[in-house]
Amino acid sequence: MGFGWVIPEVKNYERLTFRGNIKNFPSSTRAELMAIFTALIVMPTRSKVMIYTDSTCAIQNMKIIIKQINTREIWTKNKNPVILQMINDIVKEKRLKIICYKVKAHSGDKYNEIADSLAKIPGFIEGISNNFFEDTTISLNYNNIKDRSFIPI
């Protein structure tokens, strides 16, 4: 299952895009959360990050991180605890302020449409080359996750 994200043009910086795929038990929520996680990795420390997504489930999952609820709840009350814990760790490490917004799917929102295209089509999207990281794998090293009750394998 594919995922993609867009960081719009900001001041003197060009638009930045990323696409990837998840495997092993793919779900649309897991793909959305992986898009959020990979986008947060490239955010500057102490920045305010506004996440626009068409996934209500992803926003509900992110509320756990935003409200800074006990990390035990990540592991006991969620279907995607590994990705959520990794998001929680990167948010704390980089001291990010996260605000989530719901965007209606397929409503013509420019950046949501680009992200959806990235999730579906590898290669060239609207003249944007995304082949730089072709055949690169991002693996979540769950052995380094802190504050966990257990990791199912």
Rank of each mutant, 00 (worst) to 15 (best):
I66S: 00
D116G: 02
T76P: 00
K48V: 07
T53S: 11
I41E: 09
N24I: 12
K67R: 09
I128Q: 15
F18H: 10
K102H: 14
K67V: 00
Y13H: 03
I125F: 03
P26W: 04
I99N: 11
K94G: 07
D89Y: 03
K67H: 02
E126W: 15
V103A: 06
P44G: 03
A119L: 11
M62V: 00
I87H: 03
R95C: 11
N12R: 09
F132H: 12
G123I: 01
P81L: 08
S129V: 13
I87R: 00
E14C: 08
R19S: 05
R19E: 05
I22Q: 05
A35F: 14
L84V: 01
A31V: 08
A31W: 02
I22T: 13
M50A: 11
A31D: 12
E134K: 12
K79H: 15
N61T: 04
T29M: 07
A58R: 01
G20V: 09
S55K: 09
T53F: 04
K23M: 12
A58C: 06
Q85E: 02
K97F: 07
C100V: 00
M50F: 06
A58I: 11
R15I: 15
Y13E: 09
T45P: 04
T76H: 03
T38Q: 10
T38R: 07
E93K: 15
K67I: 00
V82I: 15
N88H: 03
S28H: 15
M34L: 08
S28N: 13
L96H: 04
T76Q: 10
S27Y: 05
T29W: 05
M50I: 09
S107M: 10
S55W: 03
Y52R: 10
I65P: 00
G127L: 11
K67M: 04
L16C: 11
N130W: 07
P122S: 14
C100L: 02
Y52G: 05
E73C: 12
M43A: 15
P44I: 07
L118F: 11
I128V: 15
D54F: 06
K92I: 14
Q68A: 02
L118R: 06
K97Y: 02
V49F: 01
I64K: 01
N112C: 10
F133R: 08
Y13F: 07
